[in-house]
């Protein structure tokens, strides 16, 4: 594993934990899109279906479990925690996220490495991850002031994707590893969405 991949994983982990701790410590999820969080939970569940079938390393398995449980904890807090759920901006968080799920699913059925359950789940998770931040970006644009922590959360998520692209470039030249074109294309779209957000974020 190269440094870019590791930094990518760490910024990703950090973004999720920062958000969970923020919600838990302040007992508030104001400014956080529950729809985006639900999409991420679906992303992790679909992608890490291979947890029991393909063993890569202890590191990979532990990280997969951490991502699934921490995203589920965020969603649980926003839906069920007696104090946190009252701070959810339901009227502002109106993005039709089901549309994204349906579109990602149809894309995965058409464009996949192979027409198998594993590969369709994987492609679906990659497509959905690329656009999962959209409800959060819409919510941020509606709010007057972007909360520092929410801004940092989006920043770390963007950094994660950027590091992953560097990791693919590095692997391409050192290992001759051809990351699948599905990840390249989706990763670029995803990073572009974040770059766009930060362009306006820093302008303000």
């Amino acid at each position: 594993m190269n440094a870019f991949r590791f930094l990518g994983d760490m910024t990703h982990l950090f973004s999720v934990l920062v958000l969970l701790l923020k919600i838990y410590a302040t007992k508030s999820c104001s400014g956080v899109s529950r729809k985006t969080q639900e999409l991420y939970m679906v992303v992790f569940l679909a992608r890490y279906m291979d947890l029991f079938t393909d063993y890569i390393s202890l590191y990979n398995s532990v990280m997969k479990v951490v991502f699934i449980t921490s995203s589920a904890a965020i969603v649980w807090c926003m839906r069920r925690h007696p104090q946190v759920r009252r701070t959810y901006d339901k009227e502002q968080d109106t993005f039709r996220h089901v549309v994204l799920v349906a579109a990602a699913f149809v894309l995965a059925l058409i464009f996949n490495e192979r027409f198998t359950f594993r590969e369709i789940c994987w492609a679906f998770s990659i497509y959905l991850e690329a656009v999962a931040i959209l409800p959060q970006l819409v919510l941020l644009q509606r709010g007057r002031n972007v909360d520092n922590l929410t801004g940092q959360y989006v920043f770390f998520l963007g950094a994660y994707r950027a590091f992953y692209i560097l990791n693919w470039i590095y692997r391409y030249f050192t290992e001759g590893h051809h990351s699948r074109w599905i990840s390249w294309l989706s990763g670029l779209v995803q990073t572009g969405l974040y770059a766009d957000f930060f362009y306006y974020y820093f302008l303000r």
Partner: peptide, 10 residues
Amino acid sequence: DSEPEAHDEL
């Protein structure tokens, strides 16, 4: 043609 390799990234 063989089954695609397992996904080694997160």
